[in-house]
């Protein structure tokens, strides 16, 4: 019961935060709503037993990415942008198109609802190790190479960002 209630609260946070994010005029407000949405997603992670991701979501996304966005919002002058028109000219056709996609997905899900109710695998016997340890085990054994590549990607991204944001190129 508590779980169910929590799910709906978090789901509301995630979805409502998302809607508010894309509708705010002021980019700072958008970012704050994005935090709400991300917190909701983090709560959902917690509900689904992904404690490590919960922490990573808060530290990396909210602490890192959103903060970075806020910095940039401060760097570039958005006052004029806030006064400008918020949606572009294609907004109605885009909305229609997204609606079509949503309808299609809804159709798929409805038609395959039986198939979607996947047989739940019996909860894995508790092995005494927590979620973080299991993630670490898999990440540093099976996914060692992708992990290294990801680190390289981050390095390249940092260098690239510095090169592009630097004053004289």
């Amino acid at each position: 019961m508590v779980d169910t209630l929590s799910f709906y609260i978090f789901a509301l946070m995630a979805l409502g935060g998302g809607v508010m994010t894309i509708t705010r005029r002021n980019a700072v407000h958008s970012a704050l709503w994005l935090i709400v949405s991300l917190l909701g997603a983090a709560g959902l992670f917690l509900l689904r037993g992904a404690e490590f991701l919960f922490a990573a979501q808060i530290v990396l996304y909210i602490g890192g990415v959103v903060l970075l966005i806020l910095y940039v919002v401060m760097l570039v002058n958005l006052d004029e942008t806030a006064r400008a028109r918020q949606f572009n000219k294609q907004w109605w056709i885009a909305l229609a198109c997204v609606a079509v996609v949503g309808a299609e997905i809804a159709f798929v899900m409805k038609r395959g609802l039986g198939a979607l109710a996947l047989p739940g695998v019996a909860a894995v016997a508790p092995t005494g190790e927590g979620n973080t340890e299991r993630v670490a085990d898999v990440l540093f054994s099976e996914y060692m190479l992708p992990f290294e590549i990801a680190s390289l990607l981050l390095l390249v991204a940092v260098v690239g960002a510095v090169v592009m944001a630097k004053k004289r190129v």
Binding site: Q90, I93, A94, V101, E104
Partner: peptide, 16 residues
């Protein structure tokens, strides 16, 4: 954004 739009249209068409 018009390119992004084309992507979404593509998704819609493929799904359809």
């Amino acid at each position: 954004q018009s390119y992004a739009f084309v992507i979404v249209v593509g998704v819609a068409v493929a799904l359809g």
